[in-house]
Design a protein around this nucleic acid. Structure first.
Length: 318
DNA sequence: CAGTAGGAACCGC
DNA sequence: GCGGTTCCTACTG
């Protein structure tokens, strides 16, 4: 796997800013090859207080939007959005920089942001596009935000996960809203009939009530941005890293990777929404989690209790 | 009653 | 074949 150097990143970034590059350029393909795998263990041996941050420039065809995730880790969550004309604000939950709130910033240029926020890789051995936020988030960061583009960075949380690509509102708007509500069944009629024949109970039909359970906000927040190509563990990690889902799922011991599903129905609902599986429930979701046992991705903690799971040690950073 | 565990068949990619 | 999804039975607290 080759990771782009900072210089090439900037080059791509600037080219993108000025040209509004198409979505099938090299940056997009980079993203395809950067998915996390157990075999790829970046510099996660760095201290927990330092958050690794991986650049992942993504070209965007250009569209108007009002909100976009910039990136997130389990210790901070960066949103940047464009509420007005060209003004950009940082917004994040309290766990920024060892518990301190982040600076709210009115930003001027993207170049400044790069210079201010990303001083250097955290260690000499670190991949060149991995940076630590610890020492170089300025009190008043400034950067440029091209209002025609969306810049998204994959990041690693402190547990070593690469976040799945950030959520993107336009993915939703590109689709027909009604199609989102109707949750089309993807079985072909033949196969569906064959399958039902072999089942003792037929597959439950989708009700409009079920479909309408999801709020507009849920649909926006959980719209898949890479079709449905997200792993359940990634999705759980995403929820765990966002304050807004604290009532659904939360860390019990982040160091140990132990988390608790607080609202099993809600988590299943969100997972079903993300995967476009309206009949998803906790029974099925938990079955998928249990499939992770033998794969060594998720396990039950040594002291087992209801709705509590643990990311396995090999997923943890050093 | 909700959650746990795992077998089995199936699906889309 | 992978990564679930769906359905199921048996079991637990």
């Amino acid at each position: 796997m080759t990771l782009p150097q900072i210089d090439s990143f900037k080059k791509e970034k600037f080219a993108f800013d000025t040209l509004s590059a198409s979505s099938n350029d090299s940056t997009s393909s980079d993203r395809e090859t950067m998915s996390w795998s157990p075999n790829y263990e970046p510099e996660m041996s760095q201290p927990q207080t330092e958050q690794a941050f991986k650049f992942e420039p993504i070209a965007d065809p250009g569209y108007s939007q009002t909100s976009v995730d910039f990136g997130s880790t389990s210790d901070y969550f960066l949103n940047f959005y464009n509420p007005g004309q060209g003004s950009v604000e940082f917004n994040s939950p309290p766990l920024w920089r060892n518990g301190q709130n982040p600076p709210m910033a009115s930003c001027s240029t993207w170049e400044n942001m790069c210079e201010n926020m990303y001083a250097a890789p955290p260690s000499a051995s670190a991949p060149p596009n991995l940076y630590s936020l610890e020492q170089h988030v300025p009190e008043h960061a400034s950067f440029n935000y091209s209002q025609h583009s969306v810049h998204q960075h994959s990041v690693y949380n402190s547990y070593g996960f690469e976040q799945s690509p950030p959520l993107r509102n336009h993915q939703f708007s590109e689709q027909n809203d009604l199609s989102m509500l109707s949750f089309p069944i993807i079985y072909s009629p033949e196969k569906k009939a064959k399958r039902q024949k072999s089942r003792k109970t037929p597959k439950k039909a989708i009700s409009s009530e079920e479909a309408s359970q999801f709020t507009e906000q849920d649909r926006l927040a959980l719209t898949p941005n890479h079709k449905n190509s997200i792993h359940l563990w990634q999705f759980l990690a995403e929820l765990l890293n966002q304050q807004k889902y604290l009532k659904c799922i939360k860390w019990m011991d982040r160091e140990q990777g132990i988390f608790k599903i607080e609202d099993s129905q809600e988590v299943a609902k969100l997972w079903g929404l993300r995967k476009n599986r309206p009949n998803m429930n906790y029974d099925k979701l938990s079955r998928s989690i249990r499939q992770y046992y033998k794969k060594g991705i998720i396990q039950k903690p040594q002291v087992s209790s209801r709705l509590v799971y643990q990311f396995s040690a090999k997923f943890k950073s050093g």
